[in-house]
Amino acid sequence: MTFFARFRLATFVLALLAMSAAAPAFAQKVGPDGAPNPTASVTSERDLLRQLPRVEGRLDIPDTKAGVLIQPEGRTWDYIHEVRLRWGGAIVILGTILVLGAAYLIIGRIRISAGRSGRKVLRFRALERFSHWLTAVSFVVLGLTGLNITFGKVLLLPVVGPEAFSSISQAAKYVHNFTRAAFVVGLVLITVIFFRDNLLKKVDIDWVRQGGGFIKLKHAPAGRFNLGEKLVYWLSLVAGVAVSVSGFLLLFPFYGTDIAQMQLAEVVHTLVAILFIALILGHIYIGTVGMEGAFEAMGTGEVDLNWAKEHHDIWLAEQLKKERGPGQPSVTPAE
C-alpha cells in the first residue's frame, strides 16, 4: 500500500471518530423528526448541575443577573420568607395581642382619677390630627395588604380558593403600592410637626421614676408628650423610614441593586413591618380601650381638663399660662 493510500485511510478513520464524538451533541440540537431544534441547550443539563449550588447560563443581552438560574442565597431567602418570617411574625403579632389582653384583664382601663371636670383643653389642631389620621389609615391599609403576602397562602387561600385568592392578592398588591405614597406624606408631616415636642427632656426621667402613670399612688409629670409617647414617635419614625426605603427598592427592582440586595430589602421590609405592627398595636390599645379620655385627643382635638392634669400637667400649665395672654382661651366649659 502506497503512502498516499495509507494517509487517506487514516484520515477517513479520524473523521469517523470525530463524527461519533459529536453525535450526542448533535442529537440534542435536532428534534425527533431530524429537524434542527433551535431551543436545544448548547450545554447539557449534567454540565449545568455540576456547577451547583450556583448555576449560570450565557445570555445575548447585557443583563448578567438574568443568567442566574440557581443560587444558594435564593434557597436561604425562600426559607426565611416562607418559614422564619411566617412563624416569627405570627409569634410577634399574636404575642402582642395576648400581652395587651392580659394587661387589660390585670390592670384594666386607666380611668381619670378625679373624674371628668366638664371643661375641655385644645390638645391637637386640625393639621396635626390630619397628619396623624393620614398616616394611621394608610398604615392600616399597608399592614393588611402586606400581611397577605406573608400569611395569605396559609390563612386566606384555603378559605376563598385559588381564583378568588389570586384576584384578592393582585388587588392588594396595587392598593399596597399606591397607598405607600400617602403613608410617606403623613410620615413627613408627623416628623416636621411633632419633632420639637418629642425631644428628650429632664422631666422624662422623672416620669420613669414615678412609674410612667401606671402606679396610681404616684404622679408622673410630663410635657406635651411623655417618654412612652416619645419612644413610640421615634421608633415609628425609624421603622417608617426603613419600610419606606426598602419598599421603594422593591417597587423599582434592580435599579442600583442586585439579586442579593433585593432579597435583603424584602427581608428587612417584612421584618420591620411586623415589628412596626406590634408597636402600633400597643399604641392603639393605649389610645382606645387602655386609657379613658385618650382617644378624644385625636378624635375631636380636645381633652378633659382633669385628664390633662393627670397625664400632661406641665403642658397644661403652659397652656393655661398662654390663656391669660391675648387671644382665645383654650379652656372652655363643656357643652
Rank of each mutant, 00 (worst) to 15 (best):
V121K: 00
R116H: 08
L122D: 04
F165V: 05
L127Y: 09
E335A: 13
W234G: 03
I314S: 03
D78H: 00
G290Q: 05
I277W: 03
G31L: 15
Q71N: 12
E128D: 07
A172Q: 06
H312A: 08
T288Q: 04
T150W: 00
Y255V: 12
Y104C: 05
G67Q: 02
G143M: 07
D63S: 13
G146T: 01
Q170C: 03
V245W: 06
I91P: 03
E335L: 12
P158Q: 02
P253D: 07
L187E: 00
S167N: 13
I259H: 11
Y285D: 05
A23V: 11
Y79K: 02
L200V: 11
A18T: 10
S166M: 13
D33F: 04
F139S: 00
S166E: 15
V42C: 09
F195P: 03
A25W: 15
D258S: 13
L14Y: 04
Q210I: 01
V30H: 08
Q51R: 10
A334M: 06
P38Y: 04
Q328S: 14
R58A: 11
W77K: 04
A40R: 01
V55T: 01
P162A: 14
N177A: 12
R119I: 03
P221C: 07
D63I: 14
L98W: 11
I286W: 14
R75M: 15
F178D: 08
P158R: 04
R75S: 13
L250T: 06
P326S: 09
D304M: 12
R125G: 15
A172M: 08
S246W: 05
F195I: 02
K173P: 01
Y233D: 01
E45R: 08
L142F: 03
M298I: 14
G247R: 00
V268P: 01
F130S: 05
K218V: 01
T332S: 13
K173T: 13
R50N: 14
L320V: 10
R46Y: 11
V68E: 02
G143R: 02
L100P: 06
E296S: 15
G101S: 08
A265P: 03
I314C: 04
V188M: 04
A90P: 01
K201N: 08
V241N: 03
A25L: 14
I80M: 06
G213T: 02
